[in-house]
């Protein structure tokens, strides 16, 4: 591990100031479960880390009116078990599916939403990437997974992002110069090299979710084994049903593009209908058309693409079963 300076901020304002002072040499440290391994691999070489773990505000859940404000420092193991979140079933599920129990005890909500995209051609040692030839993301000229692509297509691989986008979450971003709110859906963009709509000086302070909007939510994660795994595909579904009729639907696909992909066509198919076998099949069929994965993650792109529809179908069946 390269040498670095470590700061423990006492307040959000202090952290924001430190971050601004550090420029691009400084980074926020949440649980460090993603950042520290990257620094060990020398994919990042920050000279200073600003730990936000001591900021009380960031590890609290506040309720105001119909909104729940989740501090960015909340640990995933806590979120997976919190009774305050029982109406956001998919969110709890997703938090419980991240990595391993030990990592979940350390990993934070903010860190999870901000982890860099992942790619089998990039998350490797220098010597490995030199053997291959460097890629778009670092030193090189071409994307190794999709040589024709002008941008890095490394997928956003957070389990929580697709669920929170589906639940319509908002994030609060704080910097030395002020703060702003943004819809999480708009927090990501289609560039794997730099996929967050956020400046280096901004800290994700909390996430707000509105209660009572959706009646059902499910998250399904595709991976080869049951633990210690990033998703190869994540399918998040949130529905609002009144007397069986769907009046709102949100379907979001994770780990398939640099940003969480909203499966609009499938949403439109569902809205106004009931969860019949035919409707489910139709929505599932449409979902695969929403994304074109490339060979940058575990499992082949064609398999991952095929599984979009399969998982969506399973998710909708699950909702139907639970509701009946």
């Amino acid at each position: 591990m390269p040498r670095l300076q470590y700061y423990r901020a006492k307040s959000l304002q202090e952290a924001a100031r430190m971050l601004a002072d550090g420029g691009c040499q400084a980074a926020i440290l949440g649980g460090g479960t993603d950042l520290v391994p990257r620094m060990k691999r020398r994919q990042e070489n920050f000279k200073a880390l600003i730990d936000v773990g001591a900021i009380r505000q960031l590890s609290q859940i506040r309720r105001a009116k119909n909104k729940l404000y989740l501090g960015a420092g909340l640990k995933l193991s806590f979120l997976a078990q919190s009774s305050e979140l029982s109406q956001f079933a998919a969110f709890k599920q997703a938090a419980g599916l991240v990595a391993t129990p030990a990592i979940r005890n350390q990993a934070t909500l903010g860190g999870n939403l901000c982890i860099p995209t992942r790619c089998v051609y990039f998350d490797r040692s220098d010597q490995w990437r030199e053997s291959l030839g460097f890629c778009l993301r670092h030193k090189g000229l071409a994307c190794r997974a999709a040589p024709g692509s002008a941008v890095c297509l490394a997928p956003m691989s957070s389990d929580l992002a697709p669920v929170l986008v589906a639940l319509g979450a908002q994030v609060q971003l704080v910097s030395r110069d002020g703060e702003r709110a943004a819809r999480l859906e708009e927090f990501y963009k289609n560039d794997g090299k730099d996929h967050l709509q956020k400046s280096a000086g901004e800290i994700l302070a909390w996430v707000a979710v509105e209660s009572g909007v959706f009646t059902d939510s499910v998250y399904l994660k595709l991976s080869r084994r049951h633990s210690f795994e990033f998703p190869s595909l994540g399918v998040a579904v949130a529905l609002s049903r009144r007397k069986g009729t769907i009046d709102a639907a949100k379907i979001v696909l994770g780990s398939i593009a640099p940003y969480p992909v909203v499966a609009r066509e499938s949403q439109d198919i569902l809205i106004g209908g009931k969860l019949s076998d035919e409707l489910i099949a139709k929505a599932a069929g449409a979902a695969a058309r929403q994304a074109t994965p490339v060979a940058n993650a575990d499992l082949s792109p064609s398999y991952r693409r095929k599984m979009i529809g399969v998982l969506l179908k399973k998710a909708l069946h699950e909702i139907r079963q639970a509701g009946s």
Partner: peptide, 18 residues
């Protein structure tokens, strides 16, 4: 001739949960 996944995360073996 480059090893495709020389990492303990990508070269998979079962976990206790499996």
């Amino acid at each position: 001739g480059l090893h495709r996944k020389p990492s303990i995360l990508d070269y998979k073996i079962p976990t206790m949960e499996d």
